[in-house]
Design a protein around this nucleic acid. Sequence first.
DNA 1: ATAAAATGTGGAATCGATTCCACACCAGTA
DNA 2: TACTGGTGTGGAATCGATTCCACATTTTAT
Lengths: 330, 330
Amino acid sequence: MPTIKDIAELANVSPATVSRVLNNSGYVSSAARKRVIEAIEKTNYVPSEHAKSLRTKKTQVIGVVMPRLSTETSSRVVHGIDKVLSAKGYQILLATSDLSPEKEIDQLRLLQSKQVEGIIFLATNVSENLQKELSELETPLVALGQDLPGVSTVLYDDYHAACDVVDWFLAKGHTKIGFIGVSAHDEAVGRKRRNGYQAQMNEAALPVEKSWMQEASFDIESGYEATRRMFKESTTTPTAIFAVTDRLAVGAMEYIKQAGMSIPEDVALAGIGASEIGKYVTPPLATVDYANEEAGMKATNLLLDHISNGDNSHKKFVMPYGLLARDSLG
Amino acid sequence: MPTIKDIAELANVSPATVSRVLNNSGYVSSAARKRVIEAIEKTNYVPSEHAKSLRTKKTQVIGVVMPRLSTETSSRVVHGIDKVLSAKGYQILLATSDLSPEKEIDQLRLLQSKQVEGIIFLATNVSENLQKELSELETPLVALGQDLPGVSTVLYDDYHAACDVVDWFLAKGHTKIGFIGVSAHDEAVGRKRRNGYQAQMNEAALPVEKSWMQEASFDIESGYEATRRMFKESTTTPTAIFAVTDRLAVGAMEYIKQAGMSIPEDVALAGIGASEIGKYVTPPLATVDYANEEAGMKATNLLLDHISNGDNSHKKFVMPYGLLARDSLG
DNA sequence: ATAAAATGTGGAATCGATTCCACACCAGTA
DNA sequence: TACTGGTGTGGAATCGATTCCACATTTTAT
């Protein structure tokens, strides 16, 4: 591995001059520049970013912390982030938290030690420790998807989206509406969407049988099971089901079909997420489009603003969402 | 941002001693160690990885270059990579090439300058320039999915998988089998799978009408269009279609349904990739499971071997695949 | 013609860690 | 008593770049 010194010797100049060529700064005669460039090409020289960062404090790297990579939502978000970042010459240092609160904090530290210039943080849990860590963090950070106090965040409008889904059903005349949610530890998906559902049912003065509200995890299989439980346990069975994610809804769809009922005639169905799968199941799944890619882009732009302007204000940005009424609605 | 010097002063020791505490190396009295640890905690000190890497040449970062992130295949692969890497304390520096050959090379250079300890490379194009770049690269590298000469690779068995898909149809008595492929610039998906199809049709002495072979890009919509063309242009229409990816197959499915034909009675269908979507469309799509996550893990382990053993041999590893015969087959 | 400004270049300090080496101290042993 | 060997510590070089400053040389302006 050649260093700047080797190039300097080869080109018969000082390291300082090589550096000037590298950075297009200061004065360099065209003769010297030519010799340096030749030396660089001959040796396949690549400057060490570490030495550079050590001196300049710039790394051109943004850290991204997310619970898991292998979901459609995540990859859309990362794609949005990458789109903005790669255009500006930044790279992504990826850190996954595996849904573990301690690991989220560890990763935050690790990224800090790697001197990333900013962090985009998709949290799931919002613990005490996490908030403490965040408040001590010097690196600019933007949260996405969960409302973290004291930091800039790009949020989805979970509450109103959930209300709108329930409204869909109400408008079709449904009164017995089931709900498949996830753990309330997840503030956004677990709590807010449930709140929206409950608020809307209350508003409409509709009673909700206990078994109509089921809790699942995040996979299709779990949506299937939740639906099975719902139908087994209910005295009056729902005529519509709102699942908080498309995957859960697809699971519900599987159960309903297997149980010999038809969608939307016997049971109407809707999810949230606008996942690709929902578009191609039969019937197509009504859902809410969260514009994940745009959210990723938005968060990145916000972060870059913080970095360049040294702007420390805490902005909250709520993403608009789109309603995709499809056949599963009736 | 405190540095090792600040800690040293606070703890009344030299930087050397702080370093010893940090790395658990050499002799440190328990009194000194205690003072150092306290100073670290008090100041929230995080050592600079840049300074460290500059000195030690170790970064604990692996670069991953891939064409795009927002596909199910990619995220499965990255997930596999991450699983192995995070267990060993490595991090992932992500670089996307956006399907552009020049960008693939740029990213390779950039990763090198960031001193990554190894690179996992998912290429699409296999150009001259790329091969030159790879041969000059000093960083250990493992390619995944495309056969690059002169480097270790983890490969999918595209040719035989394609043969097996055609065999499915042959076994069901189909003789008119259509094919939806992608550009031959993509060696693995474009060329090898097509070769498998053609070889098998030849073997069975079955004629292939020109319009039965259509070229598409990678999205569902494009599969739809390719199928439309196939049916419009053919004098005899196929009774079975092999699409080289599940997404293309789903597009084909859409067209076939919309044209009023039924699957598998009028047209049988199969894809490759075992994407989740294929499992939940109606009818479920027959496909080939490529074990992407395992491939990512395999590639990572191979890479780590190279790194730790300084092992420069070029291993080729072909992943086994699984056949998922589902209802779309008939 | 002479002062002032622009151009080119190298020396050396610097960033924040690690690590070799020298040195000091305190046992235990011959 | 003197010598070994294990402990504990700090000084200083080092990694590979950037950048300030000083200095030399040329060009331009007055």
